[in-house]
Design a protein around this nucleic acid. Structure first.
Lengths: 208, 208
DNA sequence: CCGTCAACTGTACCGCGGGTCCAGTTGGAT
DNA sequence: ATCCAACTGGACCCGCGGTACAGTTGACGG
């Protein structure tokens, strides 16, 4: 039968399109509420096409989370990489990176669409141990990254108050996640960026 | 404290039980994934019994959110009320209240079960404008409360850095929400309390 | 020019469960 | 004895996840 020609169809194949559509829907409605039928309708394929790419719906969930974690790592690599080109001082790098992160988030046209880690955490009884482990390790990797930067900071700067570096590293993730919830609940697309910048102020205050 | 719902179990009947069971499931699986059949099975009633209490599933969502917001207001009233009995200084009251809040959260046996506001925000396409408005106003009310306390603080204490009071008020909510996500994702029931205490440290640092 | 393979389509089917409708029952207060 | 709130019972529709499998299409290598 004649293929409906959408330019998007040609680029990247159906698998990526399925995942893009599914991710958007999952972040707005939850995983169970996102039906395979609506995904394939929006992707311009058939149900059979879906099951060619994913053995079942849980495989889609796993693939979404894996891809999301990779994308986030890439964003952090980019932001901290750009920050490291602008300064040699670990504290400055961290503060610049947080500024850049706030900018990245603010420049998203519709605001941050939501974090798959948060949705997964709030629906973890839907998923198997593998997906839950993936989520746990994803967050742990973020915290480990931030803790690494913080350790470089405390090697040079004495914190004004005693703080647990693990908690502070977790707070970077936590403020992002909380900022997204605020943004979605309040319908205010600038909330997340403002929360990141406020955390940045606190970190600046803590070390100088 | 949630004891009222237990009383309701014995006196009133199934409505409170339905809501308790539904809330636990919604916070662990999402709204759509929580089936009416599992709720009524756990509550020991029939499907017809459910629809006697709620015209449809969305009415359950609205009732859950309304009750949740009231319960949270009661917790904040309690925590800030107890804090106000221990000091007359607005900053001390705020710091004591945050400490008490961390204690309340830490003493929950299974950790914080999750925030309905966050689940609702992450599934808002499931709900109508009324539920979304309820969620927005609930968060706005929390922020307004915290901003009120902060205004009393800045009337006496000069912040060490310029901060937007609205953003700081939002951050109390945001850190709680982010802390819950961390807790769920990491499987660490102490994460939320530690995040609240770290925010407390930052606020203390900001004002003295 | 042919064969192969990946990437699908088309069709038929199953079972579960959300949701609707409504008629009937029960136990406690008045 | 009556009334009503709080249910029960059962029939029904349909959307959706998932299965099964045969057929189609177009690019590419030999």
């Amino acid at each position: 039968m004649g293929k409906e020609s959408n330019i998007l169809h040609q680029r990247g194949g159906a698998r990526g399109r399925i995942m893009d559509i599914a991710q958007e829907a999952v972040l707005a409605k939850g995983f169970e509420a996102t039906s395979i039928e609506e995904i394939v309708a929006a992707a311009g394929i058939t149900k059979s096409g879906f099951f060619y790419h994913f053995p079942d719906k849980t495989a889609l969930a796993r693939a979404l989370l894996e891809r999301y974690l990779e994308q986030e790592e890439a964003i952090f690599d980019d932001v901290f990489g750009r920050a490291a080109e602008l300064s040699d001082d670990p504290l400055q790098i961290l503060l610049i990176a947080l500024k850049l992160l706030a900018e990245v988030v603010e420049n998203l046209p519709e605001g941050h669409p939501g974090c798959l880690v948060a949705t997964t955490a709030y629906q973890d009884r839907l998923f198997d141990a593998e997906v839950r482990a993936l989520n746990r390790e994803g967050v742990a990797a973020w915290s480990a990254r931030f803790k690494g930067y913080l350790e470089q900071v405390v090697a040079l700067y004495q914190p004004k108050r005693p703080v647990d570096l693990d908690d502070l590293a977790d707070m970077v993730t936590g403020v992002c996640e909380g900022g997204i919830v605020l943004q979605k609940a309040l319908g205010d697309r600038t909330a997340m960026a403002r929360q990141i910048l406020l955390l940045r102020t606190f970190i600046a205050m803590l070390f100088k």
